[in-house]
Design a protein around this nucleic acid. Structure first.
Length: 349
DNA sequence: AACGCGGGGTA
DNA sequence: TACCCAGCGTT
């Protein structure tokens, strides 16, 4: 039996029962695929269900507003996915009469849909013969065929794309694409895969050459940047001051609080910063520490401190990005995880 | 081609 | 701690 048939056979036995595997509706598949970008199935599943319930059709999605979409997306990360989905839903309403495209060449034009997602949606909804190439497929092919070209180089991308497309020939794209990804996720796992029970153990290059832990090859490590966020909680009666985050940084269009970013953790106790606070909020402002925490992202580590400011004078222009909201309104705003955590822990309902 | 973008699971 | 996850958009 060849590679593809072994994979499909394994899949029929071990596949998980996932809701998006029971439909060929391109809209529903699109929803699942965007949510699952860089996201584990177990993490994305509850979000998929909530989104499908909130927006049963692309028409419903197109009618949503950004704040509502981001609130539903809260906690899932990579928030541009949610914003791009809204944009694309509206495009589909406008230019495809609400009928979600199923062809690769149409899908690839849409915002938030790249080569992987276009291949996934087209093959799962219409059976188009486009090979999916995601982290799972890279790993399986790299190990089984012993390819050590870095998967994140342009050469590697070309090489693996060609191989994946070649392997798809003569297969049922709808089944085979699902199968090889599921095989990568459950059997050919990144760490300590169970090669002892793998149906491909005899023909797998990496296993025969003891290279399972070396493949796939990936170029360079990510350098994490340290950042220090000092948030200020300002209250006026029932109202609290919030800030809508702008372009060019993390958490675009989500809400946090007035922020002073510093270059080191203890800078807050430096005179300069103390002076900055007093300049911004008034000379006699009282600063009370409320909470300190470390928030780890893929590309940065953020040391976050929250302070209550008492006796402050509002001394800054309240631009469109800053506003006073009630506690009930606050709960409706989309927030980064660390902000939601603080509100939950330290602000009374 | 390189970089920025979240949050969580695993060993 | 280090790596990875049904990647994509921007520069």
């Amino acid at each position: 039996m060849n590679f593809q048939k072994e994979i499909e056979k394994w899949y029929e036995i071990h596949k998980r029962d996932l809701p998006w595997r029971h439909t060929r509706d391109a809209y529903v598949i699109w929803l699942s695929e965007i949510i699952l970008q860089q996201t584990r199935v177990e993490q994305g599943l509850p979000y998929f269900k909530r989104f499908l319930e909130a927006y049963p059709s692309v028409k419903d999605f197109a009618a949503a507003d950004e704040q509502q979409v981001l609130k539903l997306w809260q906690g899932l990360g990579y928030y541009s996915r949610g914003r791009n989905m809204l944009f694309t839903a509206r495009e589909v309403e406008k230019y495809h009469e609400g009928c979600f495209p199923v062809q690769y060449e149409e899908l690839i034009k849409l915002k938030g849909i790249g080569e992987y997602t276009a291949a996934a949606i087209s093959s799962f909804s219409s059976g188009e013969a486009r090979a999916v190439l995601d982290g799972n497929v890279f790993r399986v092919l790299s190990r089984y065929f012993g390819i050590d070209t870095p998967i994140n180089s342009s050469e590697g991308k070309k090489e693996f794309t060609a191989l994946a497309q070649e392997l798809l020939k003569g297969q049922n794209a709808m089944v085979y694409n699902q199968a090889i990804m599921e095989f990568g996720a459950l059997q050919c796992k990144p760490k300590s895969p169970d090669c002892i029970v793998c149906p491909l153990q005899e023909s797998c290059y990496a296993l025969r050459h003891k290279r399972v832990n070396d493949l796939p090859v990936k170029l360079k490590k990510l350098v994490k940047r340290n950042r220090y966020f000092n948030y200020f909680i300002l209250k006026q009666g029932e109202k609290i001051l919030v800030n809508k985050r702008g372009e060019g940084d993390i958490w675009q269009h989500l809400y946090d609080f007035p922020l002073l970013e510093t270059l080191s953790e203890h800078e807050l106790f430096n005179q300069d910063l103390d002076q900055q606070i007093r300049n911004a909020y008034g000379k006699d402002v009282l600063i009370r520490s409320l909470m300190a925490t470390k928030h780890v992202l893929t590309h940065q580590i953020i040391y976050v401190q929250f302070f209550a400011l008492d006796n402050y004078i509002i001394n800054f222009n309240s631009g469109a990005d800053i506003k006073w909201v009630s506690r009930a309104e606050l709960d409706e705003l989309p927030q980064p995880k660390v902000i939601a955590g603080f509100i939950n822990a330290k602000l009374t309902k």
